[in-house]
């Protein structure tokens, strides 16, 4: 199964979602993290993970650029799951991965600049569905404020309702330092030894994301 994490804008938390999801999948399945972004943050995470935590569930990593359709087509038979981290813009990598992906997750911050990209993403998705009609698409709000007084996430969810081609997941990924700390360590928040309230909530967010996408499998 190929899961593409895609957005038209950098800084939406694609790599955070890709690495945390890959590490969660790795607890039960053979998973490959394909870094298609020339800003190789996912690869850096893999390097750190391999070096700092060699005993953690293995997340295989590889970098591929440009047209990655054939690569994904080949690799999908070798791994139960492939998570693709694509560049934060409309790119050949994103489009070619969309042609073979089973699931596309589109992270977006609940900010005007991120939401402004959604109409264009929606158009690209509609085009890709002509070639890959079975692909499942999900929008995902990321880096939401943990301050309950800030209603941005709710407003962003209303914005998404205008784009039925991108159904929004219920789970919202919040802006938490624990995500950044674990990224630089090569860990997932589900693996952290941090017992703080924020770490627990981050863990719940990733578990919920996994359940919502895969239906609790």
């Amino acid at each position: 199964m190929i899961i593409l994490i895609a957005s038209q804008k950098g800084g939406a938390g694609k790599t955070t979602i890709a690495t945390n999801l890959a590490a969660k999948i790795a607890t039960n399945y053979d998973v490959l993290l394909l870094d298609a972004d020339r800003q190789p943050s996912a690869t850096e995470w893999c390097v750190e993970r391999k070096s700092n935590y060699p005993d953690r569930p293995r997340v295989h990593c590889v970098q591929r650029y440009d047209d990655i359709e054939d690569t994904l087509d080949d690799l999908k038979d070798r791994y139960a799951y492939i998570v693709v981290d694509s560049p934060g813009r409309d790119s050949i990598e994103m489009r070619t991965a969309m042609l073979v992906a089973d699931i596309v997750i589109i992270p977006a911050r609940p900010s005007q600049t991120d939401l402004n990209t959604i109409p264009a993403v929606s158009r690209i998705i509609n085009q890709s569905k002509k070639i890959n009609p079975s692909v499942k698409i999900f929008g995902l709000l990321t880096m939401a404020s943990t301050n309950s007084q800030v209603k941005e996430a709710k407003e962003a969810a209303e914005f998404f309702s205008d784009f039925p081609s991108i159904p929004l997941l219920d789970v919202v990924i919040s802006d938490r330092k624990i995500y950044r700390d674990n990224m630089s360590e090569g860990l997932s928040v589900i693996e952290t030894g941090n017992l703080s309230g924020s770490a627990t909530k981050a863990k719940e967010e990733i578990e919920s994301l996994y359940k919502e996408i895969f239906g609790g499998n």
């Binding site: 359709e69 085009q127 070639i131």
Partner: peptide
């Protein structure tokens, strides 16, 4: 036709 559609889709990349 699918191949042509694919190529068109990929070539439309806005970079």
């Amino acid at each position: 036709d699918v191949e042509a559609l694919k190529q068109q889709f990929i070539n439309n990349v806005d970079v």
